[in-house]
Design a protein around this nucleic acid. Structure first.
Lengths: 231, 231
DNA sequence: ATTTTTCTTTGACTTATATCAATCCATTGC
DNA sequence: GCAATGGATTGATATAAGTCAAAGAAAAAT
């Protein structure tokens, strides 16, 4: 973790949270004065679950994984986060602890802003408050979907969904470098790594994907969508 | 559903949302003017998943179940809701649709307040906005816990947890009338109803609970807690 | 009170999925 | 270049949990 501000100031920055767009010049200056940047190497921990949550963290570049540390060392990977993402978690407003961990996958540049500042702005700017509520809601909404997916779909459906998530929401391509290990895909879909391997093999046999250890190419997206929806 | 206001006005009401406590007299009057009450019989639908969410709904008396309708008719029961609970769900701020259904278990009295009013107050009252954020956060937090529980614990742990939830958070007693069917307990713990029966039988054999079809008595709470935590 | 419907319970069976163990492969460090 | 490490893959096996079918028990409706 190397710390020196690279982004000169918030006004010029377009890699931060969309909700900062509606701030006044003074509010933005308040944020700018009270932030610090940090850089993380791959696999370094950005947020540790259970530690006191004093800062909102915004990724400005790179890719990170958001995951919960569960029972007996088993993790649950919630999602991948790229720039323009607020990382903080609901725990902040419940018990002032982060309720998930975040670790860098690629080199990650992140901006730390004290929650005192965020709260000040929420109190003074109703639009920002609503934006904050929308952000929280969207994350909660996805979590609701996630519970359904994890509890009601079978492995094929869960894996198909993860592959589509990577293509549509993370790498924005149907032919992507897979930055996660089978283990991590398993943590995301609640399957054993061996099961991930097996079912990827099946999908490959059926010519739905082409799977290399470190990359995936989606060959038949419609079929993959059907599998994802049928469960 | 029978509709006529029973509660004379918000100021006198102590069955509503804690977050209304901090409102000014004028704000409270605004709420009071724009609310209407409704009464629901057991098993009647209060909120239907997917329908447009124009109102925040507050239960003032009775018990309701909050559940998501999943794939191929399989439900996931999220929690039970009693008085002082805001029902609305994150969908409201995402796509203006309720993302879960709510159905009355006992006779339920509920208060409907338009979201326009809620938003007006959020914009004008920072304390209320923060309270709203806290409420959203707490629900999201519980959802995070729920995913872990459902995905990482085995059936014994999940059932034990549900039984403790009823005792500690719903009926406030270790000897309670069970208002849910085995089917519904299954929907809550992601198990088949037959599995619920079997494992309740096992817990009974081990003298940890006494289970009647419509009531439960917890005999050895410590042991139940261990089972719940060990998974 | 009797029928009907809705729950509960039980046993036999099937299936999905995890676990274990071994091997293979690809990087990375020396 | 060669060991060392961390992942990927495979097959065999174990187990958790679901499904099906049928019978009992309660509750609700007539």
């Amino acid at each position: 973790m190397y710390s020196e501000n690279i982004i000169s100031n918030c006004e010029a920055c377009n890699r931060c949270w969309a909700n900062f767009k509606g701030l006044s010049v003074e509010e933005l200056e308040l944020v700018n004065k009270n932030r610090y940047e940090a850089s993380f190497n791959p696999s370094e921990i950005i947020i540790k679950q259970g530690s006191p949550s004093s800062n909102a963290i915004f990724i400005t570049s790179g890719l990170a994984k958001v995951y919960m540390e569960g029972y007996s060392g088993k993790n649950l990977l919630i999602n991948l986060a790229e720039h323009s993402t607020l990382l903080a978690g609901p725990g902040v407003h419940v018990n002032s602890r982060y309720c998930y961990s975040v670790a860098a996958i690629t080199q990650v540049q992140a901006c730390f802003i004290s929650f005192d500042v965020i709260r000040t702005i929420i109190a003074g700017n109703p639009g920002f408050a609503l934006g904050f509520i929308e952000d929280l809601s969207e994350k909660a909404f996805r979590m609701h979907q996630k519970v359904l997916n994890l509890t009601q779909k079978k492995m094929h459906g869960r894996l198909a969904e993860a592959l589509l998530y990577f293509a549509d929401e993370v790498f924005h391509s149907d032919d992507y470098q897979l930055l996660l290990t089978r283990q991590e895909i398993g943590e995301m879909t609640n399957m054993a790594k061996e099961s991930v391997v097996r079912i990827m093999g099946e999908l490959e046999n059926e010519k739905i994907i082409k799977a290399m250890p470190r990359s995936v190419k989606i060959l038949n997206k419609d079929k993959l969508r059907v599998i994802s929806e049928k469960g």
